[in-house]
Design a protein around this nucleic acid. Structure first.
Length: 291
DNA sequence: AAAGGATCCAACCGCCAAGCG
DNA sequence: CCGCTTGGCGGTTGGATCCTT
């Protein structure tokens, strides 16, 4: 069942309707972009380059906000954008990446050439999420999401620990959920549910109720082998946005993609240091890093 | 055929961080 | 340090389209 409709960039459909009742109003346009607007924006960016989006509307004559122009360019007009059917490989990758990273769509999209974060997000919400959470309601409760989202943003913790759970809940559950959130994600006070204080650590493993795994972060190869996965009793703290394992050998920063770890070991702690040794050079070689 | 519900996705919103003067 | 601007992100929504009755 493919309910795809024509994109607004298609010349066959012009569905834009003025947002303002008064045609003389200079308020930025909303709603779908017309092919004419796309052409103007594309030509403008090709001539002047990206950036300074706030001035694009004035200089190009588009009645759009800078944010809207930027979004349109980024998601639809820039070169090498891939549209349409997601391949099985792409679907699999999205699922695996989502399990690893949670709702960090820009990072997931970064691994899918030509795909945008918005497209990946939409695809997840409409196709993949219902596979993993078939009972999830169509629309999440805005109230709850805002509470959780704000908390997440404030504390810089992974959204995977919060937003990927099935949310087939009634309003009556919200109080309890909020209380749970207040305990489980009380990172303001760097406190775990059991009351013990979190301490800064070279590594982290963060398992949530959905068996999500946050990326371990290392500051050295030694740390990597020391803490993962042979020392999974260590204190774990996820306090970095960057989901990649950082390695700082020979004074040169390099990065090992934690996705490779996840692919190699999954979320289990069954791997040994020898396993790690075997995968690390390979992973580094794959990324032209080398320790 | 028509009406209403379900689905999908483009676009917007609010928030945040970085950069700059 | 402060305030402003800009860009980026994830969550949410409006409305077009499809499906079911």
């Amino acid at each position: 069942m493919d309910k795809k409709r024509s994109s607004s960039s298609s010349s066959s459909v012009v569905t834009w309707k003025p947002a303002a009742a008064n045609a003389n109003e200079q308020a930025p346009k909303k709603n779908l972009w017309t092919p004419e607007e796309d052409l103007i924006l594309k030509k403008y960016v090709e001539t002047h380059g990206e950036g300074n989006w706030a001035t694009v509307s004035q200089r190009s004559g588009l009645m759009r906000s800078g944010k809207s122009c930027r979004l349109r360019w980024k998601n639809y007009l820039r070169p090498n954008i891939k549209r349409g059917h997601m391949s099985q490989e792409e679907q699999d990758l999205i699922i695996r990446m989502h399990k690893l990273l949670g709702n960090r769509w820009s990072l997931i999209a970064g691994r899918l050439p030509g795909r945008t974060d918005n497209e990946v997000k939409n695809y997840w919400n409409t196709h993949l999420n219902k596979m993993s959470c078939p009972a999830a309601p169509k629309r999440k409760t805005s109230h709850l999401n805002k509470i959780v989202t704000n908390k997440k943003k404030k504390n810089k913790i992974s959204s995977s620990t919060i937003t990927t759970t099935c949310t087939d809940r009634t309003d009556d559950d919200h109080d309890q959920i909020q209380k749970k959130d207040a305990i489980d994600f009380d990172h303001d006070h760097r406190q775990e549910p059991n009351g013990s204080n979190l301490t800064s650590s070279a590594s982290c493993y963060y398992n949530d109720i959905n068996d999500m795994v946050e990326s371990p972060i290392f500051t050295s190869h030694h740390d990597c082998l020391q803490y993962l996965p042979t020392n999974l009793n260590a204190t774990f703290l996820f306090d970095h946005d960057e989901p990649f394992i950082a390695a700082d050998a020979a004074s040169s920063s390099s990065y090992l993609d934690s996705f490779l770890f996840f692919e190699a070991f999954g979320s289990s702690a069954a791997a040994t240091a020898a396993d790690m040794e075997s995968v690390l050079p390979l992973a580094c070689a794959d990324h032209h890093l080398g320790w």
